[in-house]
Write a protein that binds this DNA or RNA. Structure first.
Length: 280
DNA sequence: ACGCGTGCCTGTTGGC
DNA sequence: TGCCAACAGGCACGCG
């Protein structure tokens, strides 16, 4: 499931393949993949891709369109099972292909960009930067965890909700999903059940450090691949081999040997060590 | 304004 | 062995 490190990896691996290529055709194969606020994808045709970036879990492709009638951004939200894959020009769509972008490089060489999404939760949004504030999700997106200071992070943790739920709320902090929430809390030795506003300054700083460490370590290993995630070349990440909490329910804690507890918190599976991550 | 429950989706897993 | 319910889970939406 693509969270910040996986989306960052896709953005990085995609860039060398698609930079400088122009979009010559778009084939949307499932209407619900198009975000309601999107401009028609056909208006991307004729524009060239000039860059890739990431905001939270959102992947952004920048285009050279200057006319206000044409999108200069293609935003992809991969959600659970979305993939952006660069393939050669003869690749054919399959059952779970939701959109195909035909590309052409300056020499006329063709290739294709596939948006595959088994569960079809993912979205594509063609837009312009000036329209992004109309999108509630974008406007309310919290700070980037890798750019956050301890003081800034403390500002985020206002409510009484369990800290785990706060970390998953994209309005609080952007890019963290179930995997990295559990991993970060384990590394910081903080219980997922602690009210967000009950963390001391030391704990807040420790948690931010853990979040940044986990995200950086995962990015360095090209993300985590469980089930569906692949980068733009179809390669898996390796960080799943370093999980200390996610998926470890019922197994001994890597730190103290206590059996890891598995609970539901806000509807999400949550794993933690009851000894290392005490509630009080 | 906030928190909670449900729907969206489909492939995989586990229990009987 | 086969069937089916539960599960995976981010986010929109509607409710109280």
């Amino acid at each position: 499931m693509p969270e910040l490190p996986e989306v960052e990896t896709v953005a990085r691996t995609l860039l060398p393949h698609i930079r400088g290529r122009s979009i010559v055709a778009v084939q949307l194969l499932r209407d619900s993949t198009l975000h309601p606020l999107s401009m028609p994808l056909t208006r991307l045709v004729g524009s060239s891709i000039i860059g890739t970036s990431r905001r939270g879990k959102l992947l952004l492709l920048q285009l050279d369109a200057t006319s206000s009638a044409r999108p200069s951004l293609l935003v992809a939200h991969l959600r659970m099972t979305g993939r952006l894959l660069h393939k050669d020009s003869c690749a054919a769509p399959h059952k779970h292909t939701r959109c195909v972008f035909a590309l052409k490089d300056p020499d006329g060489e063709g290739s294709k960009l596939f948006f595959d999404d088994t569960r079809a939760f993912g979205k594509l949004l063609a837009t312009r930067p000036e329209f992004l504030p109309q999108w509630d999700f974008w406007r309310n997106l919290g700070p980037e965890p890798l750019e956050l200071t301890p003081a800034g992070f403390a500002e985020c943790l206002k409510g009484t909700r369990p800290i785990k739920q706060a970390l998953l709320d994209q309005r609080v902090i952007a890019g963290i999903g179930n995997i990295y929430a559990d991993e970060s809390l384990f590394r910081a030795r903080i219980s997922p059940l602690r009210p967000a506003n009950s963390l001391s300054a030391a704990e807040t700083a420790r948690l931010l450090q853990a979040i940044q460490d986990v995200l950086r370590l995962s990015i360095a290993q090209c993300g985590s691949s469980i089930r569906d995630y692949q980068d733009a070349d179809g390669n898996a990440g390796a960080f799943q081999n370093s999980f200390q909490a996610y998926g470890q329910g019922g197994k001994p804690c890597k730190n103290c040997g206590t059996i890891m507890e598995k609970i539901k918190l806000g509807g999400r599976t949550t794993v933690f060590c009851p000894r290392c991550q005490k509630s009080r």
